[in-house]
């Protein structure tokens, strides 16, 4: 790294986790070299998964994954918001409720637990980096933008857009269900590339037409199955 880069004033970064699988943190750590380069821009002041010395704040940027499940976690989340200039919700749990939000559609008696809240339900967030898990490239793009005081925006097109570029054979055209048409791009259609359908983990794209999608999927699977598909990572129709 050149000396001029090292002289840049660093911003402070914190990475927090609530109840979830922590897969988004591992996606951030996917490439240790990238993470290490990131430390030329950011002083990582709180990252329990990776280091021992952690501070309570304040932070220029904080990333948070997971859903707040307990009083302790809700308090923790509110405090993080207070300590952070910019708060970024990362991953489907923080954004949509994640797989655990299925609980919201089950009788409360079965579990005796409250509804699953998203991070967005509890505090104001500045940005969202969606996905289950998030994409390594997208989170690093977001952090680089934020370092240079640039806004970060998500692609406003459907997964189908990227899927075409990858020359995948359209699943819907083959009579198989897929949520690509209503889901926000940015994942490079990774699931369809791997042979699976898109399951909507990145949430809905602005112009999503759920009415039309239901009509098309209705010729393949039952309404109950459609409902359940649209809720795997949290209700994306909402």
């Amino acid at each position: 790294m050149s000396s001029s880069r090292q002289n840049l004033e660093k911003k402070t970064l914190a990475i927090f986790s609530l109840t979830c699988c922590e897969g988004c943190q591992f996606e951030i750590l996917k490439d240790f070299e990238d993470f290490s380069k990131l430390q030329n821009l950011f002083e990582v002041n709180n990252f329990r998964l990776g280091q021992e010395d952690n501070f309570e704040g304040p932070f220029d940027v904080a990333l948070i994954e997971g859903t707040p499940e307990s009083e302790r976690e809700i308090k923790h989340l509110k405090n993080i918001r207070k300590q952070s200039k910019i708060l970024v919700a990362i991953g489907s749990c923080a954004h949509l409720g994640g797989i655990q939000s299925e609980r919201n559609y089950m009788p409360k008696k079965v579990l005796g637990k409250d509804h699953v809240k998203t991070v967005l339900d509890v505090v104001r967030v500045d940005y969202i980096v969606p996905g289950c898990p998030i994409s390594h490239q997208e989170i690093f793009k977001c952090l680089t933008n934020l370092y240079w005081d640039k806004k970060f925006s998500l692609p406003d097109v459907a997964v189908c857009f990227e899927c075409r570029f990858n020359e995948n054979e359209c699943l819907i055209k083959q009579g198989k269900p897929c949520l690509g048409p209503v889901t926000r791009a940015g994942c490079n259609s990774i699931c369809v590339n791997g042979g699976e359908m898109c399951l909507g983990c990145r949430g809905k794209v602005d112009q999503a037409n759920f009415h039309k999608l239901r009509e098309i999927l209705g010729t393949m699977i039952s309404d109950k199955e459609i409902d359940s598909l649209l809720k795997i990572y949290g209700n994306i129709e909402k």
Partner: peptide, 8 residues
């Protein structure tokens, strides 16, 4: 927190 994966 419990996510009750088996139940969901």
């Amino acid at each position: 927190g419990d996510r009750f994966v088996e139940k969901i």
